[in-house]
């Protein structure tokens, strides 16, 4: 048996290779089969789904995709989700990168205590904050607007994003900042010219979490909005769930349409996400 470079593979090498591909195949199967099943099911009738859940559709029901777009007003909701997820991501990153810079690179009284208070927010279940957020949104006259969701998602994500950014910024060597100071960099320039650009992988990691949160969030979107003009995709998916009946196949069609951007984000940014996670895990 010849290897890539023409060298002979030993039995143990071949076994290791087969084992590697078996493991990869196993994870590939469990990752992709549900997605493929979802895609195929989105072309079936509901009855077909119940009777033959793993068969190919007898007649490919394009109507499910028409329903997905028409009944739930998917195009508008899609646009709203893009806006809400993107703007809340930008806002979160702007705020938390500056906060993390101060906590990671400066020394001041009660530094650790303040950081702990912020990070403790990670432990608060978001459902416990529904009533306060609702009252606050109403008091600010933001109910039923995209801003209600943008500000809420930003607030909810501050702790986790600060945690990620802080962990990342702590790994940047002090010498780089010291060199910038010697060159005359101000406090803000140390952040904007040195630390912020070097935290790009961390920003992508935190940004991905925040974006996906905004993209997938349902309960606050339902609580804080009432018209389609200010609602997001996850509510559109639920339009197929009524009190006593769920139109699963149209819902699956809507889900297929909604996960496309998530997959696209991951395909384009997966290297940085993995690098960021690994970096945080090893050095954070």
């Amino acid at each position: 048996m010849n290897g890539i470079a023409g060298t002979r593979l030993t039995f143990s090498d071949a076994t290791a290779k087969v084992g590697k591909w078996l493991v990869l195949g196993f994870f590939f199967f469990f990752t992709f089969v549900p997605l493929i099943w979802l895609l195929l099911s989105s072309f079936k009738t509901n009855l077909e789904l119940q009777m033959r859940p793993f068969a190919l559709p007898a007649v490919w029901q394009i109507q499910n995709y028409v329903n997905a777009i028409q009944i739930s007003g998917l195009p508008r909701l899609f646009l709203n989700s893009v806006v809400v997820s993107s703007v809340s991501t930008v806002l979160t990153l702007v705020v938390t990168s500056m906060a993390a810079f101060v906590f990671a690179r400066e020394k001041f009284p009660l530094q650790q205590a303040l950081l702990n208070v912020i990070l403790a927010g990670v432990l608060v279940p978001i459902i416990a904050l529904m009533a306060p957020y609702f009252r606050l949104t109403n008091a600010l006259k933001l109910y039923d607007s995209l801003w209600a969701l943008i500000l809420t998602y930003t607030a909810i994500n501050l702790p986790i994003s600060t945690f990620l950014m802080h962990g990342f910024m702590k790994t940047i060597p002090k010498e780089l900042e010291e060199a910038a100071v010697i060159d005359g960099a101000s406090f803000f320039q140390r952040f904007s010219r040195v630390i912020f650009p070097l935290s790009r992988v961390g920003l992508v990691t935190a940004g991905t979490f925040v974006f996906l949160f905004g993209w997938n969030e349902f309960i606050y979107a339902l609580l804080l909005t009432s018209r389609i003009q200010s609602r997001t995709l996850q509510l559109g998916i639920r339009f197929f769930v009524s009190q006593f009946f769920t139109d699963y196949t149209s819902m699956f069609a809507a889900i297929v349409l909604t996960i496309i951007p998530s997959i696209a984000v991951y395909v384009f940014l997966h290297e940085k996400i993995i690098k960021g996670l690994a970096s945080g895990a090893l050095k954070g």
Binding site: V83, V87, K141, L142, D144, S145, L146, W147, S226, Q229
Partner: peptide
């Protein structure tokens, strides 16, 4: 887009 969205949606 978000800047052109009405702040209040009444």
């Amino acid at each position: 887009l978000v800047m052109t969205t009405p702040l209040m949606a009444t």
